[in-house]
């Protein structure tokens, strides 16, 4: 009896975490293809929100809508609302450039600029505010330490960023996103082009970063989602099949599609 009450309380606690981003009745199309179909969900503050599902299911499109990077895509149309910081981000009055500094993003493939490691970290932030030399150095050290890259690169900050390994490059991409000081970080399968050791390093990093940031982590790797997720969202065929606290989601999935995906990595939707 006691145990079950405890479980219910815990369950409720997880449910009641404050939402950082809320998606309401959202549809998206690319030309004639209906990519997202009536998406309703909440990403919770200071949690790792894992979006998982098979490739081509609309996971990337979903998170790319949250910082409006899809606006750049020709033929993209949408319907619905996404709320962040108390207002609809698709509202006409929203400054998209500013929005993107609050909702940062890391892509699947590391994309360091052909500049030095130092310039890569400061690439975004130096456009947003003037930094003194001391502040730049401090920022550099702080952000590189946050992604546990400082020890590996502190002696060669002026080397080109492409001289780093792919795993290091991806951590550098996270560091430059952190430098802008966002509230939410979207990561679109950030480990899928990395070796297992580097991937684990990124996972550990996520567990640390969630103390300060809301993390939205897209993956198609179920084991990875199990290791890091606090809140899980299963997207397939452009719809949300199921979402909930990770513990319940992975142990007692409610929907048959979720069960089959978790057990067989196959989903018929």
């Amino acid at each position: 009896m006691k145990k079950s009450i405890l479980k219910v309380v815990q369950h409720d606690l997880e449910q009641d975490a404050a939402p950082a981003v809320e998606v309401c009745g959202f549809h998206a199309w690319h030309e004639d293809a209906h990519i997202l179909n009536d998406i309703n969900l909440a990403f919770q503050e200071y949690k790792i929100n894992c979006v998982l599902g098979p490739s081509g299911g609309g996971k990337s499109t979903l998170i790319r809508c949250i910082n409006r990077i899809n606006d750049e895509i020709e033929g993209f149309t949408f319907k619905g609302e996404i709320h962040f910081g108390g207002r609809n981000i698709y509202d006409k009055s929203v400054d998209v450039t500013r929005l993107r500094t609050e909702i940062g993003m890391v892509f699947q493939k590391p994309s360091v600029f052909p500049k030095s490691i130092c310039e890569n970290v400061l690439f975004g932030i130096q456009h947003l505010k003037k930094l003194s030399k001391a502040a730049r150095l401090q920022m550099l050290e702080e952000k590189l330490k946050a992604v546990s890259l400082w020890r590996e690169v502190s002696h060669r900050l002026n080397d080109t960023a492409s001289s780093l390994s792919v795993g290091q490059q991806q951590r550098l991409c996270i560091a430059r996103t952190l430098a802008v000081e966002p509230k939410v970080i979207l990561l679109d399968e950030p480990t899928s082009s990395l070796d297992p050791v580097s991937a684990r390093a990124i996972e550990d990093l996520m567990l640390e970063l969630k103390q300060q940031y809301t993390i939205v982590f897209v993956t198609h790797n179920i084991q990875q989602a199990k290791r890091i997720a606090d809140h899980a969202i299963f997207v397939c065929g452009g719809r949300i099949i199921e979402q909930g606290p990770a513990r319940r989601f992975f142990t007692h999935p409610e929907q048959p599609q979720t069960k089959s995906y978790l057990n067989e990595e196959f989903c018929d939707c």
């Binding site: 910082n67 990077i69 750049e72 450039t97 500013r98 993107r100 500094t101 940062g104 993003m105 892509f107 493939k109 994309s111 600029f113 690439f123 975004g124 932030i125 456009h127 947003l128 991409c173 430059r176 996103t177 802008v180």
Partner: peptide
């Protein structure tokens, strides 16, 4: 120039003009 470089710069809060100028 691969699209990802433009998108990376945009997600770091650069305006379109800054992306053109820098990337």
């Amino acid at each position: 120039i691969p699209k990802i470089y433009r998108e990376s710069a945009l997600t770091l809060g650069l305006s379109k003009w800054q992306v053109i100028w820098r990337v």
